[in-house]
């Protein structure tokens, strides 16, 4: 067993020497402004995928999106929202929060994934949010794992955070997986959104440590 692992390590070393990759700065993060999330993870990892699993209705995925828009607006970072079911409501946000947003209104999951593949390679974006929260279950099931690894490879050389909102864990290449599972009460409709945001408590399900390149 030990011999096998030694061989594997030697093989990895040889591959790293022969195909050196661009060195990556470790630990680059995009702070979200949500205390519970930033305390636990430091923020959303850049050059990696983050999956937000929304298992319950009204669990606050758009509230989280609104907070990400606020955080990126402060730094004037450009954001792309790929909306697989055309469910984003611009009227729910202030005009100023939309100034740095590129909204892609897709008609299918396939189109949304293709658009994400293009946008994830653009050097001008700092955050790409793929909303598959209402994507049909069959579409998610049919999406091959290679598609997610392809997206991972697409963002690795870039400086952007790719966030995917899904109804169930679906992204095998996600470096960080958070779960929102608590539906909001009716009283949430009367409370200030800022307070609701601070009360968001995404549950950390997975946090992979990024392997050192080279």
């Amino acid at each position: 067993m030990a011999a096998a692992s030694d061989k594997l390590a030697a093989l990895r070393r040889q591959l790293a020497e022969r195909f050196p990759t661009v060195p990556r700065t470790m630990g680059r993060l995009l702070p979200t402004g949500i205390a519970s999330l930033d305390d636990a993870t430091g923020g959303l990892p850049l050059s990696a995928l983050t999956e937000i699993v929304c298992t319950a209705p009204s669990c606050g995925s758009h509230l989280l999106l609104g907070q990400l828009l606020t955080a990126t607006r402060a730094t004037r970072t450009r954001v792309a929202l790929i909306d697989s079911t055309d469910s984003f409501d611009p009227a729910s946000f202030t005009e100023d929060l939309l100034a740095h947003l590129v909204w892609v209104r897709c008609a299918s999951t396939t189109a949304a994934l293709s658009a994400t593949d293009l946008l994830a390679r653009d050097a001008n974006l700092g955050l790409v949010f793929l909303d598959l929260r209402r994507a049909p279950e069959s579409d998610l099931r049919r999406t091959p794992a290679t598609q997610w690894y392809r997206l991972q490879r697409a963002v690795e050389p870039s400086d952007l955070a790719l966030v995917v909102a899904t109804p169930r864990p679906s992204v095998p290449s996600a470096q960080l997986r958070l779960q929102l599972s608590n539906p909001h009460e009716a009283t949430a409709l009367d409370r200030e959104r800022l307070i609701l945001t601070t009360e968001l408590t995404p549950v950390l399900q997975r946090q992979r440590v990024q392997a050192a390149a080279g």
Binding site: S58, H62, G66, S87, F88, F93, R134, R191
Partner: peptide
């Protein structure tokens, strides 16, 4: 006047 309540996720 800061926004109140949750954002809407539309059905279109």
């Amino acid at each position: 006047h800061p926004p109140v309540g949750l954002p809407l996720r539309r059905f279109r």
